[in-house]
Design a protein around this nucleic acid. Structure first.
Lengths: 125, 125
DNA sequence: CAGAATCCCAGCAGATACTG
DNA sequence: CAGTATCTGCTGGGATTCTG
């Protein structure tokens, strides 16, 4: 309501830039991508995302929950059951990231080929 | 052609994961986004991307060039002129990232609101 | 099972200075 | 203008341990 907030990601230290940093942080992209397949429990997420530690999983989850992208649901059972799901806002984001992830899967071979060309050109002084 | 290479980003240390790391690295997303607006000179990119240092700009540019996403063109003039442009592969990527950047610009306000709710709920012990 | 807390290190990234 | 080189610090993130 007050003036217009600067959400342009190209401007340093503006809110939009911080959002970009959250969303493209090392694990957030994979986490959103994993949750796009459906709500999941903590340990399932850990198994799905190769290489993530429990610390980074819970830390990233907390940031995304704070941003309103992920919802956390606790069923108070004897063995605690906690489920994470995307919020509607998170689903929108997931659509974009899933597209990106799909493109990577399809293009990685081309990129590796390009790397080979680049390295070969460099080694020829 | 040989077997199937593992390009699934969810698998640790596979080629696809490395590509994801490049593409979502701190500056690469903004750099691709900036180049999506058209080929640009070095100093223009630096001015466009708030907060980037020359070191990180040239470093990120080099990684993306190696991946075959960005092309570097030198006109050997007295004042050196170097232009960077997206390759066709880079254009494909830019389409995905521009969508993401647009979503962020549109959703940042919602996210800030969510952060406020989250923090308020926490402070009430 | 689902985390929080602590310790600790590698490497990302910034500042500065120099070069073609 | 368009970088590279070096130095250094800061912090992202891993390993481990502990709790409800």
């Amino acid at each position: 309501m007050d003036a217009e907030p600067i959400n342009d990601v190209f401007v340093a230290d503006c809110p939009g830039r911080h959002v970009l940093d959250h969303v493209t942080s090392r694990w957030a992209t994979l986490l959103i991508g994993a949750l796009a397949e459906g709500p999941q429990r903590f340990y399932l997420l850990r198994d799905r995302i190769g290489g993530i530690s429990e610390k980074m999983l819970s830390q990233t989850l907390r940031v995304l929950a704070r941003d309103g992208l992920v919802a956390r649901e606790v069923e108070p059972d004897s063995p605690p059951k906690v489920t994470y799901r995307l919020t509607p806002l998170g689903e929108e984001l997931a659509a974009h990231l899933s597209g990106l992830i799909g493109w990577i899967a399809a293009s990685t071979d081309d990129i590796i080929t390009a790397q080979g060309r680049y390295d070969a050109a460099k080694s020829r002084s």
